[in-house]
């Protein structure tokens, strides 16, 4: 399947024809609706909230936010003027902004209760122009997103990474910005697999990211952090015998000439020597 991300930058790819096509396709509408509902479920908002929709496009997901129970108010941002034009024609309830998320979000601190983004943030990994570094764009985006959410706020970003490398790049950028982050995968191992990046801003209720899915059915939790922690602990300390043996083994694998191991390896020399 071809990826729109591989063709053109988003503001040019979503031109008038493409925007119209995107908005009128009932297949896309359905997928978009189910993903937005899932995102709302993950956000778990109980009161009417102010939500930022990043990459709102023609407001397909925004409509669902307005009609949700309780009804939310949203502010949408997108880089494609044509998409926003379609949104205006459809008379969506949210307020719209033309902007590039890779340049950072132009909001003051603590503005929003929550943020959603449906099929958008993978565009940040594009390198369309010279001198545009995806890493910088990602960190600008996540840093500003972290700032503009209020404490205890949450963000859910559904995205389509090209490969695992891209997925990890996005996740690590989010963690670096200070978010508590987790990935939720719907329909894993199928063609319809959907990835949701769930982000929380520190606060009482958000100490552990796995708490987000605690009350949801059919979700298995794989906690990678414990494994990483154990691995870091298990690593040999520099200068110990185990560490020297490990290094020697590494060098041997590289084909270097390494002294053979003996009972003296890694031992301190006698002081009399």
């Amino acid at each position: 399947m071809s990826r729109p991300e591989d063709n053109l930058p988003p503001d040019l790819f979503y031109n008038d024809t493409e925007s119209r096509k995107y908005t009128t396709s009932s297949r896309i509408q359905n997928i978009q609706a189910s993903m937005t509902n899932r995102a709302l479920e993950l956000l778990g908002l109980e009161t009417p909230s102010l939500i930022l929709d990043i990459g709102c496009g023609s407001g397909l997901s925004g409509e669902i936010l307005s009609e949700a129970d309780p009804p939310h108010t949203w502010i949408g941002m997108d880089i494609s003027p044509s998409m926003l034009g379609v949104a205006l024609d459809r008379e969506v309830d949210g307020d719209l902004l033309l902007g590039d998320m890779g340049q950072g979000l132009p909001f003051r601190a603590g503005s929003f209760d929550a943020a959603i983004s449906i099929s958008a943030i993978q565009w940040l990994c594009n390198e369309d122009e010279k001198g545009v570094d995806p890493k910088t764009r990602l960190s600008r985006f996540f840093d500003s997103l972290y700032a503009c959410l209020k404490r205890d706020g949450k963000a859910v970003c559904q995205f389509y990474p090209r490969d695992d490398k891209q997925r990890d790049m996005i996740c690590s950028a989010a963690i670096k910005a200070g978010f508590g982050a987790g990935l939720l995968e719907d329909d894993p191992e199928t063609k319809n697999k959907k990835l949701y990046l769930v982000l929380t801003v520190g606060g009482e209720g958000n100490k552990d990211i796995t708490g987000v899915v605690k009350n949801m059915d059919g979700v298995d939790v794989y906690d990678n952090r414990k494994k990483l922690l154990a691995k870091a602990k298990g690593d040999a300390k520099q200068g110990t015998k185990a560490w020297i043996m490990k290094k020697k083994e590494q060098d041997r694998r590289k084909g270097k000439v390494v002294k053979s191991d003996s009972k003296y390896t890694g031992r301190k020399r006698n002081i009399k020597f």
Partner: peptide
Amino acid sequence: HQTVGNFLLPSHLV
């Protein structure tokens, strides 16, 4: 323009 604010910045200001 038409209620939509334009917050695109020229690259030297980002």
